[in-house]
Amino acid sequence: MKGINTSLYGVGQGIKNIGRNRVFSCASIATMAACLFLFGIFYSIIVNFRSALDTAEQKVGITVFFNPGITEEEIGGIGASIRTRAEVASISYTSAEEAWENYKAGLPAEELATFGEDNPLEDSASYTVYMNDVEMQDSLVRFISNLAGVRKVNEEKDLSKSFSVINKIFTTIAVAIVVILLAVAIFLINITISTGIKVRQREISIMKLIGATDHFIRTPYVVEGILIGLIGAVIPSVVMYFCYGGVTRILGENFSSFLSDATFVDTKSVMIVLIPVALIIGIGIGYIGSSMALGRQLKKIEAAGNE
């Protein structure tokens, strides 16, 4: 009962503080919102990029050829060994006949006639191995090359490997920008709360004089900081939630040829991560910013009485 009373009082005072300190509060909220909005945009880009990359990766395969005269059982054994590897998504077998049929299909008729009934690709039975992660290609190729009965392993050089590097660079830059903006947000919230404390220095020293605990004195300011962070997180979350679908649809319609068959990740899968993370960051930053301000300013008020 007591605790609830105090908490309610603290929350009430915290809300009042935001009203009293309107200019700084708005600046803090706007910075917080801009920061988390950018975070949301970056996150959406990265998630979609990642998803496009995954789709592309699934089409990248390693082709494994065998020594001449290998038995079906030995081929089966090699297949089993490859399947034990974690990075392998799937594996498919192409017999020499299928390889020849595939090859023939791509040749003009007059050239085809020169081969007669022979299969010139007699030893070209193969496995095609698809991976979960194109980054693992090198180690997988090394592993397969060392298996007994394997003659040759063809890596498929693909764009996805360089895409993956681009994605990494982009992620790093995005994280750096967001971190810098978050630091600015902490700084602004710190200033906002500090200003509020300075204005009410007299009130705080009276509170101390009549026996208010630190907890009681701090609560309104912590609430103020958390509310600023929370509002700063809710605004971009709502905007992102309602705009994401529309923006991706427009992008899809206008750049469909450019984006080929890549599809956008749907709103729900993006927001289910984005919104909770944005809220947690907002609340966390608000808490950190106000705690920093409180630590400094309350110490100053205390020192003012002492020296």
Binding site: G3, N5, T6, I210, G211, A212, F216
Partner: peptide
Amino acid sequence: AFAQRVIETPM
């Protein structure tokens, strides 16, 4: 009332 709020007296 402030002096009582501060020490968490019921309303």
